[in-house]
Amino acid sequence: MSNSLYYTLALICVIGIIWGIRLMNSPKTAISGNLLGAISLSITVLLTLLKYGILSDYVLWAGMIAGGLIGYYISIKVTMLKIPQMVALFNGLGGGASGLVAIIILAENHNIENLFIKITAVLGLIVGWVTFSGSIVAALKLDQKISQKPIQLKKHNLIIGISSALTCIFAILLIIKPSGSLLF
């Protein structure tokens, strides 16, 4: 598939997704909006598989089917009351997926010289995993598996400060480390 065809079709799908969100404005059209969004997203996934020529990769399909079945099972089983937890969990998994992709980029192409890719991958790594861990904690809190009361640690701000600083330091190290070595 040519690049321009892929981009054109993908653009149509993106518009479909936005239109779907628009339809969710009112409960009357929300169901069809949701459907439109889901179909657009599925087509986008198929398009991407086609473009990179991995449509026939059976491992990929096995993974998608397994994941799809789990998602389907959860969404059927879930009670209305537990939907917030489910949303938080799924959301976190989305962040985790981005984080995994970032890891793969950084680990597989560890001799990349392209600074842009390095920086964006490191950013994706950080934001993705912050989303993952945060959403999992939020889901557990909503499910009352852990207390819903805010927990204030001693020297809360100090801990947050140190962990943010460490994140920044490691991010910079990852970006400027000499290529060709995965570890230092």
């Binding site: 981009y7 993908a10 653009l11 799908c13 993106v14 997704i17 936005i18 969100i21 997203l41 986008t44 398009l47 991407t48 917030p84 949303v87 938080a88 959301n91 976190g92 989305g94 962040g95 997926a97 981005s98 984080g99 992709v101 970032a102 980029i105 842009f116 890719i117 964006t120 991958a121 950013l123 994706g124 934001v127 993705g128 912050v130 989303t131 945060g134 959403s135 939020a138």
Partner: peptide
């Protein structure tokens, strides 16, 4: 939760930048 929600989009968009996939960037951006 709402912030985390948007962060998952941001993460997707940034990762999309890293693998040069404009569609991922667009959807993540939304």
């Amino acid at each position: 939760i709402s912030l985390l929600n948007s962060l998952s989009g941001v993460a997707g968009a940034v990762t999309g930048l890293a693998i040069y996939d404009p569609v991922l960037v667009a959807v993540g951006g939304i």
